[in-house]
Amino acid sequence: MSLEFYNPPLRIFSSSSTKKGVEIGGAKSIISIDSEHNFYNEGNIYTEMSWAAFYEEEGLEDSIDTFTTTEYDSIREDPEALVDTIVKTIYQIINNRKIFYGIADFEVDAFLDANTTVIPGLKLDYEIINKLLEAHKRSREKDLFPKIISDSHDIKKIKIEFQGTKKANVHIMGSKLEDLINKLRLAKGFAVGIVCTSRNAANMYIMSDNIVFSKDEIAEVYIDDENIKVIEYGIKKKLLFPISWFRIDIGIRSLETLEFWDQIKDSPDLNKAFGHYERYINALVYKKFKSQAESQKIGTDSEDDFYKMSPKERKKALKDMEKAIEFLDKEYKE
């Protein structure tokens, strides 16, 4: 099932090249989702692009000689700007009736470096890296990047689709906003992989993830060997064309991965915004519980009491509601 990604970091999905060099770089963006799980880039924490010039000597045409920075914009090392951006983003998400999804990293290195920073610790055979390198070269030569579309409001977007054994960890199922937030509010972890283009869409092939949806659940990293085989086969058959690496940290706790998190986490403005967001998502969870309870003809005249509770009491009530929702879902299906 394909989704739409609004205002993606365009240079990442359409980097240019010539026989003399290639564009490489990266972007870190704050992502929200709507009730249909479409992605929205709410703002970039950093973007960086460089021109990597190849050696001119014969036999070294695909090896990088020099780097020249062509674009750089970053707030990741500016605590004040980070707080301002996160606070603005949270209120923006609430006002537009969306959900804070997480932080997405994209890295375009033309697969010239086996040690990608997006997937630290991931070691791929040089044979696979060489296949990615050659396939990316074909992508550049034939301009096989995802098709960038403009809607009626001139907003840029691309089609994306997640692929992998555990793709449900990142493409969360639900038909309403409250279904999605009920899963996302306790989510933590990340998924990493490769963005490949196919049929003008960006396919996000997940190679590994450690995402959990409960505080008590222990995160375990796994390697999706089957999906890696699919990528290899698709490249071999010239059905898939690799573009970049990606890493997506999901949930509001993804902010804890920011380099300067310890310096900003106690900001009064930030915590005030978090308080507003918590009330917003609590209302969504309550809405889900209320609608399901009503369908089972269970009395639900407790809304006023719920909003009069202390944060600690609401937290416990939400946990009880979550168990009730699971029970009602099971009852409904039976």
Results as ranks from 00 to 15, higher is better:
Ala135Asp: 09
Asp109Glu: 06
Ala273Gln: 03
Ile103Pro: 14
Lys98Ala: 06
Arg140Cys: 11
Leu240Phe: 03
Thr47Cys: 05
Asn95His: 11
Leu122His: 09
Val285Tyr: 04
Thr117Gly: 11
Gly275Pro: 00
Lys142Asn: 12
Lys312Phe: 03
Asp329Leu: 10
Asp125Glu: 06
Ile248Pro: 12
Glu42Ala: 02
Lys215Asp: 15
Pro242Thr: 03
Leu133Arg: 15
Lys98Asn: 11
Phe5Val: 00
Phe241Asn: 14
Glu56Ile: 01
Val230Ile: 03
Leu177Asn: 04
Lys123Arg: 12
Glu23His: 14
Ala27Leu: 05
Leu184Lys: 07
Thr257Gln: 11
Ile252Pro: 06
Asn271Lys: 14
Phe145Ser: 04
Ser150Asn: 11
Arg247Leu: 01
Lys156Cys: 07
Asp179Leu: 05
Phe289Gly: 04
Gly43Arg: 09
Phe190Leu: 12
Leu239Asn: 15
Phe13Cys: 02
Lys188Val: 05
Asn203Ala: 04
Lys315Glu: 15
Pro9Asn: 00
Lys131Cys: 02
Arg247Tyr: 11
Pro9Ile: 11
Met1Pro: 15
Ala293Val: 08
Tyr72Gly: 07
Arg11Tyr: 12
Arg253Pro: 08
Phe190Met: 14
Phe13Trp: 05
Glu259Trp: 04
Asp224Pro: 13
Leu258Ile: 02
Arg11Met: 03
Ala202Glu: 00
Asp269Arg: 02
Leu112Cys: 09
Lys290His: 07
Glu42Phe: 01
Leu180Lys: 14
Ala104Glu: 15
Ser302Val: 13
Leu284Val: 06
Ile99Trp: 06
Lys265Asn: 11
Lys238Gln: 14
Ala104Trp: 04
Gly234Cys: 01
Glu61Ser: 10
Lys19Glu: 06
Glu178Lys: 08
Gly21Leu: 05
Ile250Gln: 05
Val87Leu: 14
Pro146Asp: 10
Glu23Gln: 13
Lys290Val: 03
Ile158Arg: 10
Phe106Asp: 15
Met321Ile: 05
Ile90Ser: 00
Glu107Ser: 02
Ala135Lys: 14
Lys315Val: 07
Asp225Arg: 15
Asp179Ile: 00
Ala273Cys: 12
Thr197Trp: 03
Tyr55Trp: 04
Arg76Val: 09
Ala81Ile: 09
Lys98Phe: 05
Arg185Met: 13
Ala191Gly: 07
Glu259Phe: 00
Asp216Leu: 12
Ala53Met: 01
Leu60His: 08
Phe5Ala: 03
Tyr40Gly: 09
Ser214Val: 09
Ala273Arg: 09
Glu331Val: 13
Gly174Gln: 09
Asp249Pro: 13
Ile103Met: 04
Asp154Phe: 12
Ile75Leu: 09
Asn203Asp: 07
Val221Phe: 01
Ala52Met: 01
Glu134Ile: 05
Glu4Phe: 03
Ala187Asp: 02
Phe5Pro: 09
Ile129Phe: 02
Gly43Gln: 02
Lys137Tyr: 08
Met49Ser: 08
Thr85Trp: 01
Leu255Pro: 08
Asp62Phe: 03
Lys19Phe: 01
Ala135Glu: 10
Ile93Arg: 04
Lys287Arg: 08
Gly26Lys: 08
Gln163Gly: 13
Val212Asp: 06
Tyr205Asp: 06
Tyr40Val: 03
Ala110Gln: 10
Ala273Asp: 04
Tyr307Trp: 07
Ala202Leu: 10
Ile128Arg: 11
Ala53Gly: 08
Asp262Trp: 01
Tyr72Asn: 14
Ile194His: 10
Leu112Pro: 15
Ile45Pro: 13
Thr70Val: 14
